[in-house]
Amino acid sequence: MTKKLKQPEVWLRGPIEEIPQLLQPAAHALLQTSEELPYWLDEFPDEQLWEKPAGRASVGFHLKHLTGVLDRMLSYAQGSALTQVQFDYLKSEGIKDKTSTTEALIANFQQKVVQALAYFKTLDESTIKSARTVGRKELPSTVIGLLFHAAEHSQRHLGQLIATVSFVKAN
């Protein structure tokens, strides 16, 4: 029997209250990732979080990276440089962390999504189109570009995580 999620995908449930229209797709993608993580990681053993099947990224990496990227994109969208804490987190994303649990890593991402959506609600159309820069090289972007990147990036890593979870569970 193939398991199924209990609701239609988030984008099919209508607009999210107070989120600007231009950011609805980004909000939907972040919420979809947030909802699917516990579904796909149901009963995933913590002791397998850092396994790297075929040398690929571990489930633990994907979970930490989802949170880290969203956090960094929110900083850039707000016009802020990254902090030392954010740089330290970035360096730690692929390092085996024996203290983290699957549940805690999921909760960290879900909390970051709540923060992101609260930020989305503060934006208006003029702000969404504002120029922003990324990184030390100050590469050009916009608020909407950064938020869409965070959303599509979360979906991309969710897909990679699902494939990794399936492989690890099968072996």
Rank of each mutant, 00 (worst) to 15 (best):
L41V: 10
T102C: 15
G68K: 09
A81M: 02
D88Y: 01
H65V: 00
T83K: 01
L30M: 15
T99V: 14
A27E: 00
F87S: 08
T33H: 13
E51T: 13
T101W: 07
G79K: 11
K52M: 13
L66F: 03
L66G: 02
Y76P: 03
Y119L: 14
T33N: 15
H62V: 02
L82F: 06
A118I: 07
A104K: 10
A81E: 03
E43F: 08
L37I: 13
H62G: 01
L49E: 00
Q111R: 13
M73V: 04
P53Y: 12
Q48E: 13
E51K: 14
R56W: 12
H62P: 05
Q32P: 07
T102P: 09
T33P: 11
F87R: 11
S75Q: 08
L49A: 03
Q32M: 15
A104P: 02
R72G: 03
W40C: 09
L37E: 11
A107N: 14
A27K: 00
V114T: 15
G60C: 09
P45W: 12
K96L: 05
L74Q: 08
V59W: 01
D97T: 07
Y39K: 14
P53F: 13
L117E: 04
G60T: 09
A29S: 15
Q86Y: 04
T102Q: 06
H28T: 05
L117Q: 10
L82H: 02
W40H: 14
G94E: 01
S80D: 04
K98S: 12
A27N: 01
S92K: 08
L82S: 03
